[in-house]
Amino acid sequence: MTPALEFSGIEGGYEPGLPILRGAGARVMPGEIVTLLGPNGAGKSTLVKAAAGLVPVWAGRVTLGGRDITGMPAHRMVHEGLGFVPQTENVFANLSVLDNLKLAAALVAKRRRRELAEMFALFPDLDRQRGLAAGRLSGGQRQMLAVARALVASPSVLMLDEPSAGLSPKLVGVVFDRLRAVRDAGVPILLVEQNVKAALALADRAVVLVEGRERLEGAAREVAADPRLKALYFGAHEEAA
């Protein structure tokens, strides 16, 4: 089966000579949620940003459903079917909820455009706030809008950068529940998470990144039980200290 999204040997970083990614690889198969874990500074966020075209990739390949999309401008990726929800400031605060969605829908080709009604059915909270400026939504609603904004372009893969950041445990549950619904609707997900426990409970598979390279990979349940997981987090902390 062709992976929905695959990274291989990604090297890259913000400034030349200071690599953050040192040959990172990961794979998302159709129908699954993969979580990308790792200690602080491991390059998890950088990897998804590199895939989304926001961080330069110096070497390696990103393929989406088998097509090479490495180095494509960020806005082209959306048309190719890659959805990305950044960690912070992931909605257009000055635009209304409706305008956020309308814009995202209008930017992709008609065949990719999903009905806004579909989004409002998936996120009923947003339906009640259509006219409100997105900047005035609560934290959880913002996260929902950010996901809806990415979904409206019917991505073939959805990448999320720490969607649980700043949310209460209860809201994390709600957001993760929606992500499960998204996967069940047929959109595979790559999820960067700091919240290891919740992420492993949600995901089907997990990849652990340390110092810009994948060090552990497997079914979420097995990774959760693997003693090496703690060692990888702990070891990196030791090095940092």
């Binding site: 075209g53 960020a74 806005h75 048309h79 950044p86 257009f92 000055n94 635009l95 814009l103 209008a106």
Partner: peptide, 20 residues
Amino acid sequence: RAMRATAMNPALARVAGVDV
């Protein structure tokens, strides 16, 4: 809308599909 979005947050505009 794309102009307002870019004014607010150019990086997000890019990943939302705006040709900045």
